[in-house]
Amino acid sequence: MTEGVARFWREIPHRYRLLGSKCDSCGRVFFPPRVLCPECRRKGNISRVALSGKGKIYSYTIVKDGANGFERQVPYVIALIKLEEGPLVAGQIVDCSPDEVEVGKPVELVFRRVSEDGEEGIIYYGYKFRLAEEEN
C-alpha cells in the first residue's frame, strides 16, 4: 500500500500549511491551489499564498456510518468551510459533538492525523477544523 505516498507528498504544502494560490490580476484566491486563473487565463498572474484557516461553516453533514479507518470516530462532522480569504474547503470538524455544529459558526485550523496506510504504512497528516471560541 505505497502507491498513495507520492501523491500525498506532492500535496504536503497545501495539506500541512493550507497553502493556496492567488491571482494577483483579479484577486481571487484558490484552494487547493490552481496554476491558472480560470477568469483571467493568460492575463492572470498566479502566486502562492498561505491561508489563515479561519472561516465559517457554510454547510455540513453528520457521518454516522464511518468510512474505512474512521469507524471509531462516528458520529463525526464533515463540513464545507467558507474561508476568510474566499475559497470553500471541505474538512472534518473535530473536538466537538455534532449537536454543537451550526451553519455560520466560526472555525479555526488544526493539524491532525487524517488517515494511515494500515499499521505499517505511512501516516497522512493534514488540516481539520474545530469550533473557534470567539467570532472571527
Binding site: R72, V94, D95, F111, R112, R113, V114, I123, Y125, K128
Partner: peptide, 11 residues
Amino acid sequence: GIDEDTVTISV
C-alpha cells in the same frame, strides 16, 4: 484525541 499524536501536538 483519536486523531492526535506526538506529531500533531508538536505542530
